[in-house]
Design a protein around this nucleic acid. Structure first.
Lengths: 139, 139
DNA sequence: TGTGAACTTGCGAATTATTCGCAATTAGTC
DNA sequence: GACTAATTGCGAATAATTCGCAAGTTCACA
């Protein structure tokens, strides 16, 4: 569970729902709002989906969680303190693989130098085909 | 307008709607289904949004158009023959800038070598902050 | 040139994901 | 303990996309 003071410190009230949402985000990783609600319901059955959405937004505003756009549209949330990494999204099987941000370092730097574009690596998704699906295609 | 045979060649029937959707995608670039429908309505007022969606899917299946995920969720369509480039999506102002795929070449190669992940550059979006918005933040 | 089967379209309804308004409840302050 | 503002639950409202189905079209072939 989230430590009380980390929420209070950021000017947020402490509610069981909010703590549970944050805890669920940390535990699940790359979870959709629906999945997060599901998780929270294990402890707090009555939580409303709106409450989950609102808390995710609030927690994101104070920098405790972040979202990224993986597959199709739906946002996916993860804890902000989690080590940033790249998301390799397979368009065929839908799996999301990880790679260290260092892999993209020179690419990110090139964008900054050439275009003044500051890439937000944590929001960054790479679409393609994973090795498993690539091999399956050949057979 | 799309040349008849390029649709027939791919086993598709030739309908005014289909031709117009393809033409609109080519003309607009990075357009949402809604925008494409809007464009088509200039010539064919009655076209239904479902028809636009279905044709985009069909045209994508035969490789004439492609979609990518830029900002928030909504898909954006462009012609397949268009020169592939990277999309630099600014999270602050929403603008979509372009950069040549070469910028990402070594990055893409690294992913292939290290993870067997074949990156689909045309589906690839880079989130961040554009130079204009970066400068605005400082003031 | 007809004809028929298969493909498409239009339309409205169904889904899905997300947001909003509002009254009731609750957390934090004094 | 009482007050104020933040938060929740709930149901309705949106927005984006998909689906079912009947009517209309396209194309292959006679």
């Amino acid at each position: 569970m989230a430590k009380p003071h980390e929420l209070r410190e950021r000017g947020l009230r402490l509610t069981p729902q909010r703590e549970l949402v944050l805890a669920a985000v940390r535990e699940l990783d790359h979870a959709t709002p629906e999945e997060i609600a599901e998780k929270v319901r294990q402890t707090h059955p009555g939580i409303n989906l709106s409450t989950v959405y609102r808390n995710l937004e609030t927690l994101e505003n104070v920098g405790l969680v972040q979202h990224s756009h993986l597959g199709h549209g739906g946002a996916s949330y993860h804890a902000a303190e989690e080590l940033a990494h790249l998301h390799l999204v397979c368009g065929t099987c839908g799996n999301v693989g990880d790679a260290p941000i260092e892999t993209a370092l020179s690419f990110v730097n090139a964008l900054t130098e050439d275009y003044g574009f500051r890439t937000d690596v944590s929001h960054f998704s790479v679409f393609g085909t994973c090795s498993t699906c690539s091999q399956a295609e050949l057979s």
